[in-house]
């Protein structure tokens, strides 16, 4: 049988969700160390959506957000995307750079660079936990920054994916910093071809026959 997104078993989906959870937990630890603040994460949501449904799932096609995204290559491939509101992003930058640093109310070069660095560290620690758990070698690209409508951000990421598939698997985790009310969404969007390899690598099937 041709394996694709639509015929993943419950346990396979569960394993992918756990992968997201482990990645996000480690990413939260890195962010927490960097900011000296406690960062909470939500239980990851996993879903399979048609490519055209994705902007809705990410907040609505016309909602404007900061998006920082990465291409993942190596033993599995896909994209990682960090999205957050501009004002929350600026508060995060302020937190990182310290109270002595004057922050513009708009996204200037320094704020963009700081947000890219935050995303870099989040995605880096997510992927390093991911690669340890899935025993895979993974590489991340340099960050690409966008301040645009969700629909446009997603289009940029999905153009390549959409040529290969009609459906997208999305693992979403929210990071929350309570004191300054900052929350950010992190998305992992694997390419369909990479998915089967990923599931094999996790060794899901060795458990499937032995369940009670």
């Amino acid at each position: 049988m041709d394996r694709n997104f639509e015929n993943l078993s419950q346990i396979e989906l569960d394993a992918l969700r756990e992968l997201g959870s482990i990645g996000a937990g480690n990413a939260a630890t890195a962010l927490s160390t960097m900011l000296s603040k406690r960062i909470d994460i939500t239980v990851p949501e996993i879903g399979i959506f048609k490519v055209e449904e994705v902007p809705d799932k990410i907040g609505g096609p016309e909602v404007v957000r900061v998006g920082i995204y990465f291409t993942i290559t190596g033993d599995t491939f896909g994209s990682m995307l960090l999205m957050l509101e501009k004002d929350e992003g600026l508060r995060l930058v302020k937190m990182m750079l310290g109270p002595g640093f004057k922050i513009n109310s708009e996204l200037d070069l320094i704020s963009k660079s700081a947000l890219e660095e935050i995303a870099n560290i989040l995605v880096g620690s997510y992927l390093s936990a991911f690669s340890q758990f899935a025993k895979m070698r993974l590489m991340q690209s340099t960050p690409a920054f966008a301040y645009d409508m969700c629909g446009s951000i997603i289009d940029m990421i999905c153009i390549e994916l959409a040529q290969k598939t009609t459906h997208i698997l999305m693992v979403k985790t929210d990071f929350v910093e309570t004191d300054d009310k900052i929350s950010a969404n992190l998305f992992f969007l694997p390419e369909p071809n990479a998915l089967i390899k990923l599931i094999e690598s996790l060794g899901v099937n060795k458990y499937e026959s032995g369940t009670d």
Binding site: S21, I22, G25, N26, T29, T33, R38, I41, A129, Q132
Partner: peptide, 25 residues
């Protein structure tokens, strides 16, 4: 047994009564 290895959380768990902490993966 959690991926959330932040110092504050580890301390909170130990203070709550957990005996040890293993970070995932």
């Amino acid at each position: 047994c959690s991926a959330m290895g932040q110092k504050a959380l580890v301390i909170e768990a130990i203070q709550a009564g957990a005996k040890d902490f293993v970070v995932k993966p």
